[in-house]
Design a protein around this nucleic acid. Sequence first.
RNA 1: UGGCUGAUGGUGUAAUGGUAACACAGGACAUUUUGGUUGUCUCGUUCAAGGUUCGAGUCCUUGUCGGCCAACCA
Length: 557
Amino acid sequence: MITEEKKEEKNLNFIEEIIEADLQSGKYEQIVTRFPPEPNGYLHIGHASSICLNFGLTQKFPGYTNLRFDDTNPVTEDTEYVESIKNDIRWMGFEWKNELYASDYFDTLYEFALKFINAGLAYVDDSTSEEIAALKGTPTEPGKDSPYRNRSIEENLALFEQMKNGDFPDGSRTLRAKIDMAHINMLMRDPILYRIKHAHHHRTGNKWCIYPMYDFAHGQSDSIENVTHSICTLEFAPHRELYDWLIAKLEIYPSHQYEFARRNLNYTVTSKRKLLQLVQDGHVNGWDDPRMPTLSGLRRRGYTPESIRDFCDRIGVARRENMIDVGLLEFCVREDLNKKALRRMVVLDPLKVLITNFPEGVIEMCHSENNPEDIASGMREIPFSREIFIEKEDFLEIPTKKYFRLAPGKMVRLKGAYIIQCDDFVKDENGEITEVHCSYIENSKSGQDTTGINVKGTLHWVSAPHAVSVEIRLYDRLFSVENVSGEEGDFKDYINPESLSIITGYAEPALTDTKPGEAFQFLRKGYFATDTDSKTEKPVFNRTVTLRDNWAKAAEK
RNA sequence: UGGCUGAUGGUGUAAUGGUAACACAGGACAUUUUGGUUGUCUCGUUCAAGGUUCGAGUCCUUGUCGGCCAACCA
């Protein structure tokens, strides 16, 4: 027990190690982190890592986590996204201390800009974006000073005031920091601090027509909020130098930035730009399409927050490039659902079976456990009759070796009911098997079997007259290649055309009592979740994930 | 010809100068009224070359390979 605890404490990721050291040295008594989404899209599985990291840190160490919307670009942002983001974070099981917005600081940020101008550290540049780019240089060549770089403080003040007042059109002027056009770090070559955008902002409305850039808003917001550990992804590492420089020159609270590698999942994309395109071009049915790697899509698909948190724990946090197998995500949801999901029998591809020695018109009730992993979930009744459906793939005219399902002369157990033996089958003119004739073995009923017969196969089934038709949506991976962004050309060329197929299934009556979001295991078929489209008269289910299938694996070889 | 950053089984993550480990994936067996679950076993790893050291995945040097950096995006 003691060694186990010790081990758990010892296995810290690199950020936790930094925090542990900061706490131990007395640098901080508590930590403050923040989750800083831009409200320009829905949260996806990659964000889940960041959420678990930022919120998890302040569960593990003293302190708290804020939610801060990084809303400095009004043209792409919207309250719809704000709401979905808040909803998704709560669904994941986390609660923020303060709900904050970078736009709350626009006045302060404007003051900061003035301070910079007065200190001779910022200037208004009349150059076009092309001119700015041309003078910027390249990673190997230094840039050149803008002709507007040495305006007087008074002129800069006046011009910036006019920018704020809306005297200039979009793109005509910017406010730039005066740092060093020859700096080895491109981001330090007089970065743009403010730009003109005559656009309506989702929170400040039309109050502003100039908006701060990320670099002049993010670190400043961190500082205003006394964020101790500002955690972001690796591509922001070069920004850190600017982050620190701005805070130092402003002489404000020194937050510190730490970067970790974003988590990449194979067979999927996690770029808001690409996800937006999938939605807008109609390749999927919205942000919450169950094929989407968005949290709302995963939720609708049937993934549980527990399984996603477990996934994030397992993949950990590091600084190296990675490509995580979606198989791990699937493992996590199976493990969670195995404990929770009620078992139901649903035939997806029916084949009629006639129990020839079972009396016509008789209905016999069978019983089966709702979940063998959870005795408390109880039992349910299942009607049995002379005519049932089994899965087409569960009968073979000529069985292959090691096939222990139904075949002429063979016996199988019907789950929760009788052992049956196949006596005969019927083919249509196309050679298609349309019906199988069996006889049930007396005294072999589940729970009161006195026959001593041992069968290898157990099949799921449903009584034909009692079968309820339900809509079932089967999903496959959205992309057919492992590393979508590693491929040439348009990523949409790699969309899997068979990512969705809709079929009708035949369910036992107990399944009809369901509400959207509920999870079931369809015996031998997989985990399914009731869809938001589901109605009492027409239930709809999404396949979350199939069961592990060793037989299918063996059959492939 | 630049800067920053990284490299441990197929994948992801540990090992903080002292026996390279855990999980997933793969394979085998057992159990099983779900070919599920569970259990047992198994496979396989330090980018390379030098150096320091009694001892190097870890420290040093050089090299190789990967990622990121020239949006009025974040």
